[in-house]
Nucleic acid binder design. Structure first.
Length: 380
DNA sequence: CCAACCGGGGTCTGCCATAGTA
DNA sequence: TACTATGGCAGACCCCGGTTGG
């Protein structure tokens, strides 16, 4: 009863603020699918100039939910002209799955079209996702991160076909789980698009002389769960870059792209080329040969992710401490550490009397725990 | 005990363009 | 013709620790 009382009070307050539309009572699953919010006045309204007016009911609902209306309108203005929207259903649905009000508001603000989905379709889609994920909460986290990936498509049959297809490629449920967590967009791609990428990967594999494309595809996808949300154009370009830049035979290239260099395929237009060119120039300026540069990058391909600014800053910060370039290229992992980690560790090590010019520099990239233990020992 | 070697984990959305559709 | 569904784009590391070998 006290709950009812406070609820009534809340209702009165909101009525005072926003007009006469009353909420349905939350927290009760039986109301879930009975709340399609038809407008009391149908269709678009028009002012004297014939301009469509947005529906007041919808705006009030969204306001009370805490939705950022300006943001939502900017993103998908069309939603605001619809006769029928299901924001109440969506809210109830997501609440029942464990999403907070704040999360729901944020989801709608960022992907307003979510409120056009029917409860039935939502529920089906959710259940299909749940065949991969073990809990509702995991899905809530994904939606919070990326509402678009769940709501952008209403085609549940396509979703199911994608899952069938991915299994048919030989991926495990665990792998699908990783794909859904890391790159949920994979599952709202059209089946055709996913097939195209898989086909491309198989062709690459065969053209490089490997005889088990299925195994290769499984490996590359599990190594790089983002691959299926890249365009084939992008992936092709990056493979061509690797092929033309390093003198690798087919097998070596395959090992690279389904192993340590797998993520390079995600890099955007010419980014790999740009970053590699910078690495080359920087190292040339420090007296390295072309061969040394190639060997250095291949020994730790993630280097190619570093932008010009960051790569140069890291090198400079090491060189300033008289660490030689040969020490650096022989221990590429030190460039893994952030600039601030490098700076603070260098300072601490010098203070501890550690001579980086003659001692090993690998500890610059050790884990915090191992590094701290080492430092403690150095400080006696 | 110590460090080298090496693989793994997190994470990658939010925007724009456009063909298709009602 | 407004709106939807879908494709594509830019963007750009850092940290941890198990195992192994000395």
């Amino acid at each position: 009863m006290t709950i009812m009382a406070s609820r009534n009070l809340w209702c009165m307050r909101t009525n005072f603020l926003f007009g006469s539309r009353c909420w349905m009572i939350p927290f009760s699953v039986e109301f879930l699918f009975k709340s399609v919010s038809l407008r009391h006045f149908s269709g678009k309204c028009h002012n004297g100039d014939g301009q469509p007016l947005e529906n007041e009911d919808l705006l009030n609902n969204l306001l009370m939910m805490g939705v950022d209306i300006d943001m939502a309108r900017k993103r998908q203005p069309g939603v605001f002209n619809r006769m029928v929207t299901n924001e109440q259903d969506l809210k109830m649905f997501l609440l029942s799955k464990g999403a907070s009000k704040e999360v729901i508001a944020s989801i709608i603000s960022r992907y307003p079209r979510a409120i056009t989905r029917t409860p039935d379709s939502l529920s089906k889609r959710w259940d299909i996702w749940r065949k991969i994920m073990t809990s509702d909460l995991e899905i809530v986290h994904i939606l919070e991160r990326s509402p678009e990936s769940f709501f952008r498509s209403d085609n549940n049959l396509n979703l199911e076909n994608n899952i069938k297809f991915l299994y048919s490629v030989g991926l495990t449920r665990k792998c699908l789980c990783r794909l859904l967590t890391s790159a949920p967009r994979t599952f709202s791609n059209s089946l055709e698009l996913n097939k195209q990428m898989v086909k491309l990967l198989q062709e690459v594999c065969l053209s490089l002389g490997h005889n088990d494309p299925a195994e290769f595809v499984r490996k590359i996808i599990s190594k790089n769960p983002f691959i299926l949300i890249q365009s084939t154009k992008r992936v092709k370009a990056n493979i061509e870059f690797l092929q033309s830049t390093f003198n690798l035979n087919g097998e070596e290239l395959l090992v690279l792209i389904c192993g340590p260099g797998a993520e390079i395929l995600d890099l955007s237009n010419d980014c790999a080329k740009r970053n590699y060119t910078n690495i080359k120039e920087k190292l040339f300026s420090l007296g390295c040969t072309e061969e040394e540069v190639q060997k250095f990058v291949l020994s730790y391909p993630d280097m190619i992710f570093l932008t010009e600014k960051k790569f140069n800053a890291k090198i400079d910060c090491l060189i300033e401490e008289k660490i030689s370039i040969s020490q650096i290229i022989e221990n590429p992992r030190v460039l893994d550490s952030s600039i601030s980690t490098l700076q603070s560790r260098i300072k601490e090590l010098i203070h501890a009397g550690y001579d980086l010019r003659t001692s090993n520099i690998n500890l610059l990239s050790w884990s915090q725990k191992r590094y701290k233990a080492k430092l403690k020992k150095l400080n006696g």
